[in-house]
Design a binder for these strands. Structure first.
Lengths: 223, 223
DNA sequence: TGGTGTGAAACTTTTCACAGCT
DNA sequence: AGCTGTGAAAAGTTTCACACCA
């Protein structure tokens, strides 16, 4: 097995290839070319080939890639041969939605626990799980190897939740709170921020509007 | 005004500077150095300076940047001088959470409408808005210049919702469905996929576990 | 003195283009 | 003939390091 790390950009795309390939497998597609995988994922074929080459040489020239085998290799590379336990902290609107998200189980994860600091919420049942107190986190971490932390609290609480997660030995955190978390070396954090995504869209939306404007002016000047 | 496009990587960070700066302004901080802005955002100071230099030269040597002025410039660049209307299609768990997300209004957006194709849901009230039929989208688009579409439907419905959005003139889409949308040139799509983010985390989590393992073996071999 | 603004260097990622295998 | 795998070129991004200015 090759031990060089896979480029970050490629790691970010492997899950997308995986999902597409799983769908193809369900539809009975036996092999796939870089060209058709590119089409289905929205990337281009050179990128697909380069990405897949980091997994090893699993394609057949003149034919393409064996869908089932590629699925297996990507799963292995991403560590998805096991189901990973996830703890969701902060069961507001978003935490609720996350707990009920069916895609979790389908794609290699299981909710190990739902936690909230609000005593009024503790005991309530969501997605078949009883909400527990944040104070239970040490126990939950102790009994779940490789636990992944998801933070869906309001921003002001997020850093202290992250600190607690780090303290109980969690080294992978998915953060939905709109704040930059400070964590020690060796802990991975990924952030999802809905408003940020929308603001990026408005930048390009505005730019398109400005471009159209310039064109209009140009025509007016000519006419 | 400079008309060269800002690098994509920088555009992706501007919203994060903005949020941090707004918080600083609320705390009465008048000026900020690239070093302290770097600390607060988790980037480094060289990156901060390079990013901000794309907006123009708004810093003062020996002092730093005027917080209020910088906020103004970033808002202008991102097109956040106006509030943008957003239509959310697919009011399941996630759509619900999005509709109730307070950060929207705070950061330049307003829900123009909530739509669902399920007649049983139409009429229901969520976040102070009545859920309407997807068939109302043309009307909504016609009366909201610069409307941004948010897709929170299940994957199988997402492409046809996107097609409809494109048809009614929307050119910015935020997609939560785990599928690559095909859209014509000139339409921007950003995708948020919860399971993808978790799968990226597991890659690194696995890598850390493997590294620890190697170290353990190394010690065992030496001992 | 302290901190910006920026060329230049280093690094990463994407794209090209084609040799070589099936 | 068709499609992978990959060096090499191109493009994009980050980091360095320092001139220059308040």
């Amino acid at each position: 097995m090759d031990d060089r790390p896979i480029p970050e950009a490629t790691v970010g795309r492997l899950p997308i290839y995986l999902r597409t390939l799983v769908e193809m497998a369900e539809n009975g597609v036996p092999t796939v070319s870089s060209e058709s995988l590119a089409e289905a994922t929205g990337f281009n074929s050179a990128k697909v080939r380069k990405d897949l080459s980091h997994l090893g040489s699993y394609g057949t020239r003149g034919v393409g890639y064996d869908v089932a085998y590629l699925i297996h290799q990507i799963r292995r590379e991403l560590g998805l041969t096991q189901h990973w336990p996830v703890v969701i902290v902060g069961i507001g609107n978003l935490g609720h939605a996350l707990a009920n998200y069916r895609g979790f189980a389908e794609r290699g994860f299981r909710a190990a626990a739902l936690l909230d600091s609000d005593p009024a919420k503790v005991g309530e049942e969501v997605a078949g799980l009883r909400i527990r107190s944040v104070e239970d986190l040490p126990d939950i971490a102790a009994s779940n190897e490789g636990l992944i932390g998801v933070i869906s609290t309001p921003a002001p609480a997020a850093q202290q939740v992250a600190d607690l997660m780090v303290r109980v030995g969690i080294h992978s955190i998915l953060n939905f709170a709109p704040i930059a978390l400070a964590v020690p070396e060796g802990v991975s954090v990924r952030k999802v921020d809905l408003a940020v995504e929308l603001q990026i869209l408005t930048y390009y939306e505005q730019r398109k509007a400005a471009l159209l404007d310039v064109k209009r002016r140009g025509r007016a000047a000519l006419g």
